[in-house]
Simulated scan of single mutants.
Amino acid sequence: MYLIEWGFWQMATESETARKAYEAEMTPAEKRTRNDFHEADLDEEIHFHCVSESPLVRGPVYAFNETFMDMRCGGSEEKRGLITLVTLGGVLPGIAFGTIISGGSIWLDFTQPESSSFLTVILAIALALASGSAMYFYSKYGIKLSRLEMLTSRHLLIRFNRKTQQVHLHRPSYCGGIVTFPWKTTGSTAINPEDDSLSLGMRLGLVWHPSRTGLPHMEMALLGKQGQGGSELRDEWEFIRRYMEEGPHAVPRPRLSTQLPSPVQAFSAQFEGLGRFFRKSSWLFKVVLLMVWPAFVIVGTGHWLSLLLCWRPRWPKVIREAGMPGKPVPPVTTLSDYPPAVQERLLANADRWQLKTGKRPTNKTRKRSVPQ
């Protein structure tokens, strides 16, 4: 499910009316927190020094070699399948059933008028209007939600190319599209040991701030599996950092995952980040989990159907060949790469990411937040 990425892109391209409505609902404390980010904070949080002595990637990793490494992105992968179940189990069958019944009733009224009555005609028209309205609203609004996990790329991908020292994000256009950034503009949410307590249930977050990329908006990627606490996220960031800075020989070789629609991936995703919590939980909690196992089976089945109904993402040729001898280096993403209408929206929301000049006052600490 690409709900977080879709929502973040919608915020970056928000209309003036929608933005005013959103800001009107914010509390004064939320407004202060959003605008409380200094230039010095960014300098402290974007660095490439060692942050862990035990680099380890938890995956899924799809490719790993001397040139590049591909990993899975996605901020709510464990929730994938819910939209698929609602769409295939309720919305589409309901629309199809209503259309068939109303169409059959209208056909009988025309071909066998002697058997029809005023009541049957009214019921057929009402059912046809209801089915038509449902089809209209689903095609206008619902299909956008369905495509967050159906009939789209099977996974969001991130590629680290150490030969070109670039990072590439592979996403559908409605989540920001395919973009390329220099490696040295990459920021991480797993830099400070004091944030380790926040890693439970969280994913490693990478960010690209406009002050480093030259774009009018901030980009974000949430990598791999949910953390189980401790320093897992710092270990994962250290793995990526050493791979890009030193090479594949500096990190343990990861186990590669398949990009095929595996049922193992579908069912195991629901338990990401729960291993350590489950081991330390009481026996009563474990019994409760055993009692609700049918729900896990249903959601896992929906997740697998969602994978089956998607296609394997494919990088553009220039990114696939990047790092090979004699091949060009992919151009870094700029504002001109977006359509004019999107450029206008991005520029209109550029002030969201502005930094305060200078350093933070010594007697004032910044509240940290880690994206899921």
Rank of each mutant, 00 (worst) to 15 (best):
L260M: 08
L308P: 04
E232Q: 08
G201V: 01
T185I: 04
H170V: 00
T120C: 05
P313L: 00
S197T: 09
F37A: 08
Q343P: 11
G104V: 06
R345D: 10
K359C: 06
Y22C: 01
T27Q: 01
W315M: 07
G98H: 01
F37D: 05
Q259T: 09
L204E: 12
A341E: 14
R212H: 12
W293T: 15
A130Q: 14
P263Q: 10
K286E: 06
V91M: 06
Y62N: 02
R212M: 05
T17A: 10
E23Y: 10
F110A: 13
F68T: 00
T357N: 14
L88P: 04
F278Y: 14
P261I: 03
A128P: 10
T213Y: 07
L129F: 09
G229R: 10
R58D: 07
L42F: 14
I298V: 13
T33C: 11
G89A: 04
P182Q: 13
L145M: 07
L3S: 15
F48R: 00
N65Y: 10
V329F: 04
T33F: 09
E14Q: 14
E16W: 10
Q228A: 15
P330A: 03
H38N: 05
R276P: 00
R314F: 02
P261Q: 02
N161M: 00
E5S: 02
L169K: 03
E114R: 05
A322F: 08
E78L: 03
P182V: 04
E344W: 04
H249W: 00
S15E: 13
Q270M: 08
M202G: 13
K367L: 08
W304P: 00
P361D: 13
F48W: 08
T99C: 03
L305E: 01
E232D: 10
I298C: 04
G323R: 01
A350Q: 15
H303I: 10
S133C: 13
K31I: 15
V299G: 03
N192F: 06
A21T: 06
W315A: 02
W293S: 12
A126K: 07
K184C: 01
E53F: 06
E45D: 12
P339S: 07
Y243S: 08
A250T: 03
Y138R: 05
P330F: 07
A126D: 11
P210A: 06
L215W: 11
L289D: 02
G227M: 04
K140M: 11
I106E: 01
L92Y: 12
L284K: 09
K225H: 09
L56A: 14
F97M: 10
M135A: 13
